[in-house]
């Protein structure tokens, strides 16, 4: 074991494992939030704004109250606020949800940058990780296995959401609303209300995802913090074919692939670092292109979703 622990391959694998755990959580939360929203038949492309605003609010609140978990909650509420605006505006007839999402992205990030100026320099209390890898005796593995509670919350949420969609009446209502609005109306359901709630709740989750960025990993607030992770996470929902469990796998894959770039350079494979850094995107595209599907692959997609029609 010790001999293996010194090899480059081991370093790479540990980095990918650690990356999967460290980097995946915000992707997971945003993807789960978006999954909920899209299941109801609406798409919110603006969760990048929720993620960034959530990160900033969480940091600020943690800084002022000294309690990072209060920050997480506040981040969720800020995301709920943005999601509710999106949900309300898109309820109006003829308003396009994709476009409003992009506009909300500008609004959310603008608000976060505006309010966040004073918090770039100070250090706020962060979420403590649970050290699950001490027993290994290998520092790098111990670090990779120091896991933030939000990671487990995210996984539990995915399992719960999957169960919710399959086994509860509410889940059925959301799915029906997403698959066929006339059918939902026939059930006596208010399509607008369901979508509004699903968008607001999805926004809440994305805000929580942002709190992970600023309070856990990388654990700091600045304006470049997200650099597009929210947008990518929304795309991952399509990749995960609207399944909460697959959203988790997609987030883990994306996190692990993101660790390839730095880790390859750390073990001395340095040529072409731009491509290693782009590994998550290349891998995702290859996987999508190679899993051949029928011409109109609407089988998994909510039927009301504008993006897959």
């Amino acid at each position: 074991m010790d001999a293996f622990a010194d090899t480059a391959l081991f370093t790479l694998l540990v980095a990918m494992l650690g990356g999967a755990i460290r980097v995946s959580t915000p992707f997971m939360f945003v993807a789960l939030g978006e999954c909920l929203t899209e299941k109801s038949g609406r798409i919110n492309l603006g969760l990048e704004g929720n993620l960034v605003l959530g990160a900033m609010i969480a940091y600020a609140i943690s800084f002022h109250t000294g309690s990072p978990w209060t920050g997480v909650l506040a981040a969720g509420l800020s995301g709920l606020f943005l999601g509710a605006i999106h949900g309300y505006v898109c309820k109006l007839p003829r308003v396009n949800d994709i476009a409003v999402g992009i506009a909300m992205m500008a609004f959310g990030t603008g608000l976060a940058f505006y309010l966040g100026k004073p918090y770039i320099q100070p250090s706020a209390p962060r979420l403590e990780a649970i050290p699950l890898g001490e027993w290994t005796g290998i520092p790098s593995l111990a670090q990779a296995l120091a896991i933030n509670p939000l990671f487990f919350v995210g996984i539990a949420l995915a399992v719960g959401m999957s169960w919710f969609f399959r086994n509860t009446r509410m889940g059925l209502v959301v799915r029906t609303t997403g698959d066929s609005a006339p059918a939902a109306k026939a059930m006596g359901v208010s399509v607008d209300l369901v979508r509004f709630l699903a968008t607001a709740a999805g926004g809440f989750l994305a805000g929580v995802g942002g709190s992970f960025l600023s309070l856990s990993y990388p654990g700091s607030w600045n304006e470049g913090l997200s650099s597009g992770q929210g947008l990518m996470a929304v795309a991952l929902v399509i990749f995960a074919r609207w399944d909460p469990i697959r959203c988790v796998w997609a987030a883990l894959l994306f996190g692990a692939a993101g660790a390839i770039g730095p880790a390859m350079q750390a073990i001395g494979v340095t040529q072409g670092f731009y491509f290693f850094n782009a590994a998550p995107y290349i891998l995702t595209l290859l996987i999508m292109a190679s899993s051949a599907r029928s011409r109109f692959s609407g089988r998994d997609a909510p039927g009301e979703l504008s993006i897959v029609k």
Partner: peptide, 12 residues
């Protein structure tokens, strides 16, 4: 960032 906020509001 204030201009970004304005843009967001106008677009929405």
């Amino acid at each position: 960032a204030s201009v970004l906020v304005l843009q967001g509001i106008i677009f929405v």
